[in-house]
Design a protein around this nucleic acid. Structure first.
Length: 259
DNA sequence: ATGGTGGCCACGCCA
């Protein structure tokens, strides 16, 4: 099974990039974030024509998440949820489902704006609610994948300029602490199983030629439970789509499992 | 310290 995560910053604008990427990389399950369109506008037919089925939870203008998956390989997802059980939230940031025996979460963690802001508190509260929900699932499932735009750089080697970003949004101790509490439930950052370099990033600001200078952060993650780590054959950030015309500011991340 | 770019939508919000 091959899974992937991609914040595409408007599905309307990026649909051609997504279809091109699906054709080239053939993931079994792709999680999209920031679709930015209401459910009645979701371009389901374009995915059907490409051999994929879809599940989505969207809203106008902001946020929005979706699963794009191959019914002929992973079947239909069971136990689909589109909200946090422990947090009342009008923003569409989560979709989770069980594909075969694997529970997959697709997440758009709040950005948090700036440390100490109201949106920052919302981000921390949201992550607490996520941890409680994932913890409950760990008692029911051995195979769990948590993937998405976490809006957190786990370590300094995930930041192009750690000194400049020190303590700032996406790098603060409280955010990293929340991520660590989730990983301590038994999850591994799968890219780090295969790659320990300090220049692998998944997001580059649109401004100041950040991509051309590789001034990025690695904030898009695929986390696997122990049963997924043991069968993980590869995990990779594909920066190629970031170089296209009118790109998303994020690159897709994929992971391949032997089962 | 500021502002730079992009999407949505039609002005300011969000990232």
């Amino acid at each position: 099974m091959k899974v992937a995560s991609w914040n595409i910053n408007s599905l309307r604008v990026r649909l051609p990039h997504v279809l091109e990427w699906l054709d080239k990389h053939q993931p079994d399950v792709l999680g999209l974030q920031e679709t930015k369109l209401p459910d009645h506008d979701f371009p389901a037919d374009a995915f059907f024509d490409a051999g994929y089925d879809v599940r989505f939870s969207g809203q106008k203008t902001y946020n929005g998440v979706a699963f794009v998956f191959r019914d002929d390989s992973v079947g239909q997802p069971d136990e689909l949820v589109t909200s946090l059980s422990e947090y009342e939230d009008s923003q569409k940031r989560i979709i989770a489902g069980t594909f075969g025996d694997t529970r997959i979460y697709n997440l758009y963690v709040p950005n948090g704006q700036s440390v100490g802001s109201e949106k920052y508190e919302y981000k921390l509260d949201w992550l607490t609610a996520l941890r409680l929900q994932v913890e409950a699932d760990t008692k029911q499932f051995d195979k769990i994948v948590l993937m998405g735009d976490f809006n957190i750089a786990p370590e300094d080697r995930d930041i192009h300029d750690p000194e400049r970003w020190n303590g700032k949004i996406m790098c603060s101790d409280a955010e990293r602490g929340q991520l660590q509490q989730i990983t301590e439930l038994g999850f591994t950052d799968l890219l780090r199983k295969h790659n320990d370099s300090n220049d692998v990033f998944s997001w580059w600001d649109y401004r100041m030629g950040a991509f051309e200078r590789n001034n990025g952060l690695r904030i898009d993650l695929v986390l696997g439970s122990a049963a997924m780590v043991s069968v993980c054959e590869a995990c990779h950030v594909d920066s190629a789509p970031r170089a296209l015309d009118r790109p998303s500011d994020h690159a897709p991340v994929w992971a391949k499992f032997a089962q």
